[in-house]
Design a protein around this nucleic acid. Structure first.
Lengths: 233, 233
DNA sequence: GATGAAACGGAACGATCATTCCGGAAGCCA
DNA sequence: TGGCTTCCGGAATGATCGTTCCGTTTCATC
């Protein structure tokens, strides 16, 4: 179903030639358990964060730890898979939002994103720095498009850059992380306020420049580099 | 120096009567080591977060682990002490900011706060939920005063509430946590943008209400309650 | 149904830490 | 300086957790 782990789970129907690797299809129980593990991991990680033990995830799935490790080489890979799920969902949401009229796509996307952050609060920080950097890049590009649309429709002021939207998102995550257990919806009002602000307000002239795309890429690479290199838009 | 651990470190001069508990003053080497431990803990926790081991802190202080445990009952207490230090500094900054003219105190405070969050990124999340709830409360009150001043000087729109400023702060922390290693100053631009937004923008009418004081108290109590009780300003 | 391959479960292993303990060193007071 | 107290260092302890291993079970195929 998710298709990211070691042995691929090929769709039932595929031309009987194709890929040289020719991985055998998983046994029926194996697919079922894989599914169960992914679902359990999603729940557990959402609720307890990435500190939750593998045993907890396994037991929630009604499965032994060994079974989890048969499908995922280690905990990091499992978490990465779950984060990847969220990433794909968000990318899809962004794609659909691009079709919304009047440049409202960005707002719509950010609202869905907020919900998602709140729901998956436990591992939301694993989105940035996901192993598939290209997926993150795609999402970024979509957000950049949404921003452009919003600016063309005058729903966001001209001076605002992609880095600002990303920072807004990081901020939403911070809000959710701090207040999520008590006021799960606190982020909504904050998002409303910020969107209202971004529509009219001009970025103060003496502010530092926005985070560049290069820096965005660097974040999540784990690189703690202090040197910004190239100048970008 | 810090006066929060098990045996108090009384200031050198005190009236030779006073408190019944009559704690003996610490030995000279003990005070020195206490100091070293606190400094080391601050550095290490800032850099590596609260996952840093006690051994690392001890060795950074040039001291054995046992020595750390003589002054602090456990790791939590040590972290709490360090967070308390930051809390007191911020409270002092807020107090002084109250004296600034034209309602600029809040902005000033938030800027200093941002610096502090960035510098102590590793344990900034331990501010909320500090053991001394009253200290947190005091800081909140100061911030509320600063907000009031700012609103009287028309530097912040009327509809903005304390909960909004707190959420802004949680957001700043989120930004710092995500981007801090690569772009330590990313929070500045975001703060500028948000302040500009808060000055003019009105809170959208259909937004959920701001986080209440009761909820603010609840956050950090570790209570994951979903029920909001009383209605407040 | 029989048989070989794949998958399962969960006990066992090893590493990492927080925390404890105690023999020895260092301050304090007379 | 001597004696007593406090403190120090760091090895040892115990718990948690990620990961591995292997005897057993379940599936797919014939």
């Amino acid at each position: 179903m998710t298709g990211h782990a070691h042995p691929k789970t090929p769709g039932p129907g595929r031309a009987p030639d194709q890929a040289p690797p020719a991985v055998k299809p998983l046994r029926r129980d194996a697919v079922r358990n894989h599914q169960l593990v992914v679902e359990a991991a999603r729940e557990v990680l959402s609720e307890f964060g990435t500190d939750a033990s593998m045993e907890l995830i396994a037991s929630r799935a009604g499965v032994g730890v060994g079974t989890v490790y048969r499908r995922f080489p280690n905990k990091e890979a499992l978490v990465d898979e779950i984060a990847g799920l969220m990433l794909r969902e968000l990318t899809e949401v962004a794609r659909r939002s691009l079709a919304l009229p009047d440049g409202t796509g960005l707002e719509r996307f950010l609202r869905v994103l907020g919900n998602s952050l709140a729901e998956h609060r436990g591992y939301a920080d694993k989105l940035v720095g996901h192993s598939k950097a290209s997926c993150v890049e795609v999402l970024r590009d979509r957000i950049a498009e949404l921003l452009l649309q919003a600016q063309e429709s005058a729903r966001i002021a001209p001076g605002v850059e992609l880095g600002d939207i990303m920072a807004l998102i990081w901020g939403l995550r911070g809000i959710v992380e701090t207040s999520g257990a008590v006021v799960p919806d606190a982020w909504r009002r904050q998002l409303d306020i910020q969107l209202a602000g971004l529509r009219a307000a001009t970025v103060p002239a003496d502010s530092p420049p926005a985070v560049t795309r290069a820096q965005l890429r660097q974040i999540g690479t784990g690189a703690a580099g202090t040197a910004g290199t190239a100048a970008e838009s």
